[in-house]
Computed example of a mutant assay.
Amino acid sequence: MDNEAEIRKRKIYRVTFIGFVVNLALSCFKLAAGVLGRSAAMTADAVHSFSDMATDVVVIAFARISAKPKDDGHDYGHGKYETLATIIISLALVAVGVGILLSSMRSIRTVIEGGVLPRPGGVALIAAVLSIVAKEILYRYTVRVGRAIDSPSVVANAWHHRSDALSSLGTLVGIGCAFFLGEKWRIADPIAALIVAVFIFKIALDLIRSGLGELLEQSLPAETEAEILRIVSADPAVKEPHNLRTRRIGASIAIEVHIRVDGEMTVRESHDHTVDIERRLRERFGRGTMIAIHVEPEK
Rank of each mutant, 00 (worst) to 15 (best):
L130G: 12
E113W: 01
G19T: 10
H273E: 07
Q218C: 04
F20I: 03
I255D: 04
I231K: 06
K239V: 07
I137N: 05
A95M: 07
R8G: 01
A134L: 11
L244N: 02
V267T: 13
V238H: 01
D262R: 08
L172P: 02
A254S: 11
D56N: 15
A85K: 05
D276S: 15
I65N: 01
P152F: 02
P297K: 09
G115Q: 11
R260I: 00
G115K: 13
R284Y: 05
V145F: 10
V111P: 04
L194K: 03
M265E: 09
I291H: 01
L26K: 04
S151M: 04
K30I: 03
K9T: 05
I277F: 10
E225M: 12
V123E: 11
F62T: 15
R14M: 13
P120L: 05
M105Q: 12
L244V: 00
V57L: 15
L281F: 06
F29L: 14
L205N: 10
L244E: 08
L216W: 02
E240M: 14
V98P: 00
V295D: 04
C28S: 15
S27D: 00
L181A: 14
I60Q: 09
K299N: 09
A193C: 08
D272G: 11
E223H: 14
L229Q: 12
E225C: 10
V143Y: 05
I137R: 10
L229D: 09
G213D: 00
D272E: 15
Q218D: 13
S49D: 09
I149N: 03
E82P: 03
D189I: 04
E217G: 02
K202N: 12
R147H: 13
I228N: 07
H294E: 01
G37S: 09
D45F: 05
M53Y: 07
F285H: 03
A234D: 13
V155T: 14
T266C: 07
E298W: 12
I291W: 00
G250T: 11
L205G: 09
R209Q: 13
G174R: 00
V261S: 04
A292R: 06
E227W: 08
V96S: 07
D2R: 07
R119Q: 15
C28H: 01
K239D: 07
G174S: 01
I187T: 10
A40L: 10
I203G: 04
I175G: 03
I208F: 01
V47P: 00
A124H: 01
E240D: 14
P120C: 02
E240Q: 12
P241L: 00
L26T: 01
G73Y: 15
I88L: 14
G115M: 13
R64C: 06
H271S: 06
V267Q: 07
D72K: 15
A41N: 07
M265F: 09
D2V: 02
Y76H: 11
R282A: 04
M42C: 06
S252C: 09
F180K: 03
D164W: 11
L36Q: 08
G34T: 03
R14L: 15
I7V: 12
